[in-house]
Each structure stands twice: as structure tokens, then as C-alpha cells.
Simulated assay, not measured.
Amino acid sequence: YWNVREEHRKAQREGRYLGVAITLYVDRNSFGWESATVRVEPTGKVAVYTGSSPHGQGEETSFAQIVADELGVDIDEVTIIHGDTLAIPMGWGTGGSRSLTVGGSAIILACREIKEKARRIAAHLLEANTEDIVYEDGRVYVRDMPERGLTLKEIAEKAYSGAVPMEEMGMQVTRYWNNSGFFTSYGAHGVVVEIDPETWVVKILKAVLVDDCGRVVNPLLVEGQVVGGAAQAVGEVLYEEIPYSEDGQPLVTTLSDYPVPTALEIPNFATYTIETQSNSPLGSKGVGESGTIGFLPALINAIQDALAVKGVELSRIPATPSYLFELIKDIP
């Protein structure tokens, strides 16, 4: 940061408009409750019915990862079902940076109960005490005697056959998890910009995003969420505008007139995560809105920093070239 500050002072002496800013943010999220039903079929395949309803965040993948890790099965054997009100238990859907944490916690609790039932069935079949049964990597065996064991598929077959009279038939569990409060994600986003004194176009030279979203289940999905939110911030701060004529008519009526940023306008973001786990069963926190929450004010303040030498203040966004030119045109 201090190296960039020195470069900032040097740029001012050279008549360049270089700006730098860092934003620290706090985001409350992961509120409410969610439901999950986990069913192990006699074939060993696992069906998961979740009240969360992903719409592009990638929870189908992360939910499947949670189940595969917890039950020790291949991720290709896991199917996630959502959005079908005839098939799934009651749920909240999605929103508020809560789907993975709240929905995933309900799923992991259901998986753990499946494992406990598998241990009880295995204890009966292997003629051992339940306390001596170990569940590990999709297999259940007698402690210190791994050769005496059964796979989850073999246990599921027995569960649906009625061979274990003291257990309810089948391998299906429905669980709910309720967060009585909320969790807090936080982070720091930094950006360096330079404004062209001829065209007044803002160029993002460097952008660094550091976010703490608790336990990271899928790093690629987290990066996509953060970068996607930051890309939205770029659009709002630099491009997207709906102006009106003096008589109140909108001057932008189609997407051909509304400048949504493309990959050419989005910078290469350097992203980093910190994992301070929450007290949810999954240990995660929300990240879906972090990119917008942190990067938008950082970008605005960096532009303001670049123009500080002119003694002007931004009073609106987007900071389009025409607006920046009007802002400083009469200042020597």
C-alpha cells in the first residue's frame, strides 16, 4: 500500500491522475432455517432434496461435495434435487448469502444421522456393539478389525430388505437447521486506478480482494461469487446509467444503449480467502454479496483519490468520462 502511495505522489507531480483506496467491510448473513432430506438408495446412490434453490451460484456442486465428503461416496453417485415443491420439504429458497451455510448445514446433519443409522445396522449384522463400529470412507467396520466390514451400499440393501427388525426400513433422513441469529463475513478490497487526462476514461490498474467466508467448500465457486460481485460493482460505478430527457423520457430503452461491462472491461482480480469458521455444522459463512459490498466503495474512493488534486468530489455514479470532464473542466 505504501509503495502505491509513493507512486501516487509521483504521479501527481507528473500531472497524472492516479488513485488508490482500500475498503474494509462487514456483511451480516446466513440467517433463517433450511431443510434437507438425504436418501441412500439400495444401489448406493444418494439423493438429496434441499429447500435451498440455487440459481447459478453452484450449490448443486458444493452440496454434492458435502455429501460425498461426509458419507465417503463418489461425487458422481450424488444427485441434488431442488426447486420442486412437490418433492422437497419446506424451505426458504435462496438469498441473503445464506444458501451454502444454512442449506449445507441441514444437509450435513442429515448425512451424519445416516451414518449413525448405518453404524447401528452394521452393529446388528456384524454382531458387535454400536460403540465399536467405525464409519470411514463409505465403509463401516468393527474397530481394530477393518476386514469385518460392510460398504454403505451393502448396508442400504439390508435397510430396504427388512433384515434389521429394530430399525425403521430404508435409509432416509430429513433434518432442519436454524440459525437463530446471523454470521458475519468480512474482508478488505483494494484498488488502484488511473484516469486518462485526454479521454477521462477510468482504467483499473490493480484490484485485490481478500474475504473471510468461513470454511471454503469449493474455492473456484467462492472466487466466482466474489469476482462476479466485483464485476457488478465495476458496471455500477463506471458504466451503467439510465438517463432521462428534460421531459422525463428514458434515453436508454434497450441493452444496446445500456453499457454493461464485458470481459474486456473487467480487470484481473487477485483473490484471497481467510477461513475463520462459524459455529454452524458446516463452519462456513456467506460470500455471495461480498464482492459488491467491498469493491464498489473501494472503486469510488479510488476515483475520488485520483481527482483529489483538483479539489473536487464525486456526487453521483456512474463516473463516466463525460461526467468527470464536466466535473473538472473549469478547474485550472
Rank of each mutant, 00 (worst) to 15 (best):
Q225Y: 09
T130I: 13
G138D: 06
V210E: 06
A156P: 01
R139K: 15
E246F: 04
E113A: 09
A122T: 08
N218V: 01
G170R: 02
E154N: 01
S245V: 09
L220W: 10
E168R: 10
E236M: 14
R143V: 12
G214H: 11
H124Y: 15
L209P: 04
E116W: 05
H124C: 03
T174L: 10
E223H: 14
V173Y: 07
Y160W: 14
F183D: 13
V191M: 05
I195M: 07
V140G: 01
L126H: 11
N218Q: 08
N218T: 00
L220F: 14
L220E: 14
Y244P: 03
E194R: 11
K117E: 11
Y186N: 10
V222G: 12
Y244C: 05
Y244D: 08
G187R: 04
A231P: 00
G228T: 07
V202Q: 04
I204F: 02
V173L: 02
G228E: 10
F182G: 06
L126R: 09
N179K: 11
A123I: 06
G248M: 12
L221N: 11
K153N: 02
A118H: 04
G248Y: 11
V191D: 03
T151I: 10
E198R: 13
V134H: 10
K206F: 00
L150T: 07
G235A: 13
K206W: 00
D211W: 08
T199Y: 02
F182H: 12
I242G: 00
L150P: 02
Y141A: 08
I242F: 05
N218C: 08
G248W: 11
H124D: 13
E236A: 15
I114K: 02
L150M: 15
T151Y: 11
I155F: 07
V227T: 14
G149T: 08
E167D: 03
M166V: 08
I155C: 03
K206P: 00
D211C: 15
A207D: 03
Y244I: 09
W200A: 03
E241K: 12
L126Q: 09
V134E: 10
E240R: 03
D137K: 15
Y186R: 08
H124S: 13
A122E: 04
D211E: 15
S180Q: 07
R139S: 11
W177T: 00
Q172D: 01
L125M: 15
Y176F: 13
K117I: 14
I133N: 02
I155P: 01
K158G: 00
E240Q: 14
E116H: 09
M145T: 13
E194S: 12
V216K: 09
P146M: 14
